[in-house]
Design a binder for these strands. Structure first.
Lengths: 225, 225
DNA sequence: TGCTGTGAAAGACTTCACAGCA
DNA sequence: TGCTGTGAAGTCTTTCACAGCA
């Protein structure tokens, strides 16, 4: 999961939204589970069933959903459609979000072509790089623009989010350019701790860290057995 | 971050290793910070400095490192090299790990070419797909093999980990093939809750979830202001 | 009977604050 | 003085257990 930034520690309590950090992290997962479920033709689901599907306790599920007003029906469960809507509202994904990819190497190119983003309402509206060999080329139908056009393009195209997929060495510098452009949030794939003004939210995905954590789980299991 | 599986909830206490889940999640980040620091020529670092770099409190850093035996020097701090070694030992990444990519679409191809893995000791030793148009092609120097050769290849090449990058619809089925082959851990990029025997550890990265959580942070900040 | 909603209890995790070493 | 190591306190999160509704 992306890490929470420095200043984000809830000051001695839950966040202003009234939802705890831990709960927010689960909402996206509930959403997946609910969509699966509805795809199978079920209109309602119990806390137990949803929890089992996701590896979350039924009590936890109920506590989380209790934050929404009385959405459940005793003896029945919850209506999937209701939950989906209220979760999407809560996360803020009930509207279209526009993103730019910054860094069109291996990973950046893959992210431009990744269908999952569009399917879930995120549109990739621009791609940037500094490499002259890439600039002007079309990747998955999107023209690669020089980084110096970043701010102007973001303004023109109404882009709010940046997905940063440049090499570690360039991440901080590039992050600063992005931050200055009025972008609201950065999803960072570079293995670097970005130090940016707090006007921009940063969330990081480090692929190698994910692998390392998997290895720990593997080794741990071997020891226990 | 990858999710923790069902059975993994520490039974009323820290795990067998004596390290809490939360701490393990931080170890990889410490590693990054320490390597940065050492690259800048510093041999020692204080809990305060390391914490500041990573957005972690100094007390937290000390508590975490206290789990290792008396590595710190009062008045000085910790020796970076010592910490790096003990963290690598703890995570189990003090040896080479071999991985296979399963699914050579956009994302799979990018992961084959991702330098970060190799730089940190993870070697991609095989690539698989079911698409006849891809089988036999070389991607970043690696030949794409048909999925039915998975188990045999894994055995031959001593592969322990699989990186699953197939479409959501095929993830469960493919996961089962992987699990049957004796693989120890799966890093799953498909937006699906894999239901697999607990002999294999699963860690999931969902790119869209990461974006959703970023959006929440963005929206939250706007409301507060 | 099957399920929600929820106080109360338990547990995990983080921060505080300070003794003590170099 | 600068820093670690650590009990104690505080905070956050999860689980328990059960009243009550359909």
């Amino acid at each position: 999961m992306g890490q929470w930034r420095n200043g984000n520690k809830s000051a001695g309590m839950e966040m202003k939204s009234g939802h705890s950090k831990a709960m927010i992290a689960r909402l996206s997962r509930y959403l997946r589970g609910l969509e699966d479920h509805i795809r199978q033709g079920c209109e309602t689901i119990s806390s137990r069933a949803l929890g089992e599907q996701l590896g979350i306790s039924d009590a936890q599920v109920r506590k989380d959903f209790a934050a929404f007003n009385r959405l459940g029906y005793a003896g029945i469960g919850y209506r999937c459609a209701d939950l989906i809507q209220v979760i999407r509202d809560t996360l803020g994904i009930n509207r279209a979000w526009r993103a730019a990819i910054v860094g069109c190497g291996n990973l950046g190119q893959a992210l431009i072509g990744y269908q999952g983003f569009r399917q879930r309402g995120f549109a990739i509206e621009a791609a940037f790089d500094e490499n002259p060999a890439l600039i002007g080329r079309r990747l998955h139908g999107l023209e690669v623009l020089p980084l110096r056009h970043f701010a102007a393009t973001v303004r023109e195209r109404g882009i709010q989010l940046a997905i940063l997929a440049v090499p570690a060495e360039e991440a901080q510098k590039t992050g600063e350019i992005i931050a200055r452009s009025g972008i609201l949030g950065i999803l960072n794939f570079a293995p670097v701790n970005l130090n940016l003004p707090k006007s921009v939210s940063v969330s990081s995905v480090e692929l190698t860290i994910e692998l390392e954590q998997l290895v720990f789980a593997v080794v741990q299991k071997q020891i226990v057995e």
